[in-house]
C-alpha cells in the first residue's frame, strides 16, 4: 500500500542538492586546470558521481524495488557496450594497413571553396614543413 512508501526526509534532499551545486563548481574549476587527457576523465567522474546521486536520492532508487536500479544500471551497461565495441573499430583502423586509418580529405566538401588545410589549419598549398616540429607542442 502507498502508506508503506518510504518518505525521504527533507534534510536528505537539501544535502543532496548542496552536494550537486558543490560538484558543479568543482567541475568548472577543474576544467581550468590543464591535466592533459585526465581532464575528460575527471569531468566524467564528477558527472558520474552527480548522476549517481541524482538517481539514488532524487529518483528514489535507494528505497525502490531493486529491479528498477537493475534496469537503470542495465541501460548504462548496454550503452557502454555500444561505445566500447564501436571504439574497437574506430580507434584501431589502419593497424594493419595504414592507408585506411584516415579519410582522404580531412575537410568536408562544404569547404571546397577554401584551400585544403592540414590538422593544424595550415593551407596545404603553402610550404609548411616546419610545423612538423609543432606537433611537439601538443
Amino acid at each position: 500500500m502507498s502508506e508503506e512508501h518510504h518518505i525521504t526526509p527533507l534534510k536528505t534532499y537539501l544535502v543532496v542538492a548542496t552536494a550537486l551545486f558543490f560538484l558543479t563548481a568543482v567541475t568548472v574549476w577543474a576544467s581550468y586546470i590543464d591535466l592533459g587527457s585526465f581532464n575528460i576523465v575527471l569531468a566524467l567522474l564528477i558527472a558520474g558521481t552527480k548522476a549517481g546521486v541524482v538517481a539514488t536520492f532524487f529518483m528514489h532508487l535507494l528505497w525502490d524495488d531493486k529491479k528498477n536500479a537493475t534496469i537503470f544500471v542495465g541501460s548504462l551497461m548496454f550503452l557502454s557496450i555500444f561505445i566500447i565495441i564501436t571504439l574497437t573499430d574506430t580507434e584501431f583502423r589502419g593497424a594493419v594497413n595504414p592507408e585506411i586509418k584516415d579519410p582522404i580529405n580531412k575537410r568536408a566538401a562544404l569547404y571546397s571553396t577554401l584551400p585544403l588545410t592540414d590538422d593544424h589549419g595550415y593551407p596545404l598549398d603553402k610550404e609548411n614543413n616546419h610545423h612538423e616540429g609543432d606537433k611537439d607542442h601538443h
Binding site: 573499430d89 574506430t90 584501431f92 583502423r93
Partner: peptide, 20 residues
C-alpha cells in the same frame, strides 16, 4: 547485442573488430 559487426566483415572496419 555483442555481435553486430559480423554484418560488416567487408566494410573496412578494423582488424581487431573483425576478430572480436
Amino acid at each position: 547485442f555483442l555481435v553486430w559487426g559480423h554484418h560488416m566483415f567487408t566494410s573496412g572496419q578494423s582488424v581487431l573488430s573483425q576478430i572480436v
